[in-house]
Amino acid sequence: MARLKPSLVLSPRPMANPPLRTPKERFQFCDTYLQAVGARELRRSDAYLEYELPIDVDKELTDRPYFWLWVEQTGHQVEPTVLRLAFSEQAAQRENERLRREAWTTAEARGMSEVERMFFRPPVCELITLGSFRLDKIFDSLAKRGRFACVAYDTSTHGDHMVSWLMVNIMVSFQAALTQQVYRSLAIRLDHGEVVDGFYDFVRRLPMQPAEPEQLLQRSRISVSDALLRLDNTLHHEILHSDLSWAEEARHNLQQELEQIDLYYESLLPDLDAEERNLVQAERDRKRQEVRQRSEPRIVIAYQQAALMGLPERMIHLPGTPSHKR
């Protein structure tokens, strides 16, 4: 298997730069998302964005299913939601002051009663950080909207021989009492079955255009279904031959804990009558079960994304590693 990166093994090797760790990246991310889903930009300033949401996006980003049910049943016209996103504390403070000022001026112009003044609530912006509610909602929305793609390299120079690939991005979780996850991107060349690792890092920056699946699958000799199966097999094979000492250690711990539980409950039994024994044994079984659920090692392969892609053949001659057939 050709590798685009020196080695992407299953042992812990943290990503060099996990995404979205800086305010700038998050700004860029949200901005791109909102534009892509067709939200209307209302305002933009340093570390701050204001967008009006289309209805379908509104439903995905605001957590109010009953409201939408009511809207649909009654046929009400609703004001579109405006998202006010700040990406730094300073921006949040600055924009909140502005929002208050503006709202107050507008309200004053309209005329406010004493009570309205007391309960005056200007709109506020929200701070977007990892783990914030809105960013999580955007993630959820993307899990639906960004799961698949069918694209081809944007080439104006004709005559390049185009090759079709199927790429899958995967999250592999190694679970015991703790989880460790590894991100993998594998692709298979649909004409002669070459499998390449770390594929997404190679294509992520490329300009791509939407393509027709028929076009991409025209000259492929491997069906999508077979392609997926082969990628899956590759991954399974690799996992089976990876260092599984963590799982062994987890098993060892599990075994010890189970023995301890058995020993403990057995030591209680002699002092008990038949009925109490049943209860204690039931408790022991439950505790054994819980320990198993907690400590038994397992591996979960979760496919995150899949894309059918057309790329010029010459592009796959990768730095240092001549592509070779399996």
């Binding site: 995404p19 979205l20 991310f29 791109t32 998302y33 892509a36 889903v37 955007i138 993630f139 993307l142 899990a143 909207r145 960004g146 799961r147 698949f148 793609a149 694209v151 991005n169 999250m171 991100y183 997404y200 992520r204 995150q304 994304q305 894309a307």
Partner: peptide, 9 residues
């Protein structure tokens, strides 16, 4: 959107 989702994951 595909690129964004890859980043999100």
């Amino acid at each position: 959107l595909f690129q964004l989702q890859a980043d999100a994951v």
